[in-house]
Design a protein around this nucleic acid. Structure first.
Lengths: 123, 123
DNA sequence: CTGCATCCTGCACGATACTG
DNA sequence: CAGTATCGTGCAGGATGCAG
């Protein structure tokens, strides 16, 4: 029963929703949620491979923040070597489409953006 | 004619689309594009008022980056006091829905997120 | 394999003052 | 009003090493 709060606006610096916006609107979150939403439950190491270039520390922090906000669940297996899997929650999945759209936008429009940049810089 | 480049992936650290993703996936860009897309052409000062808490410097930089990438156009009026207006381009408008969706998500789910955080922190 | 601790660097961002 | 210039600060995030 998530209620819409029309008087809560990300535009207000005092509104906690802005903090939430800052968390979801960043490249690592966008990439992680997109990959998790597309692939389903994934291991830490596989996520790290997919998110090419991310450091272990940053991936851990990103996943922990997502878990804290209830967007991701962490499944620890009592094995050795350890195996930990991550999965989007129902709430987290509501973010999948919007964030995947952002990733897609970057991929689909990068050529046009690069041309615009050249034009702009040529003055 | 923006071509989809299926071999360009934000997941690759070497792909320029990731830089583009990093630019559009941040709170100030999300807020600015959402407001510009909803309100149409706007003055610098009005944008600054809407984006509560943003400094003049950061707003200038945000708008300049958007202009450079061809997402926003800058209209300078030869008046005194000066009047400068900003407006989304057609390309910029393709970002409006996705970024507005992110802002809306933050507003609509902040209550649930805050509850999850309390539960998580209570251990 | 997963993840934590430590250290370090760069940049995002804010504050302030000044100009056309 | 709409910037620019300058400076200061905090934090994101990378590198490395160690632990369970």
């Amino acid at each position: 029963m998530s209620q819409v709060m029309p008087d809560w606006s990300v535009l207000l610096s005092t509104c906690p929703s802005r903090t939430s916006l800052a968390r979801i609107a960043n490249k690592w979150t966008a990439m992680a949620v997109s990959v998790l939403g597309s692939n389903g439950r994934m291991r830490f190491g596989d996520l790290r491979t997919q998110l090419d270039g991310i450091s272990g520390k940053v991936l851990t922090e990103t996943l922990r923040d997502l878990e804290r906000d209830g967007l991701v669940t962490r499944h620890v297996h009592a094995e050795v070597p350890p195996r930990v899997e991550y999965e989007l929650t129902a709430l987290g999945f509501t973010l999948h489409a919007p964030l995947l759209a952002l990733c897609r936008w970057a991929e689909e429009h990068i050529a046009e953006v690069l041309v615009n940049r050249e034009i702009y810089d040529a003055r």
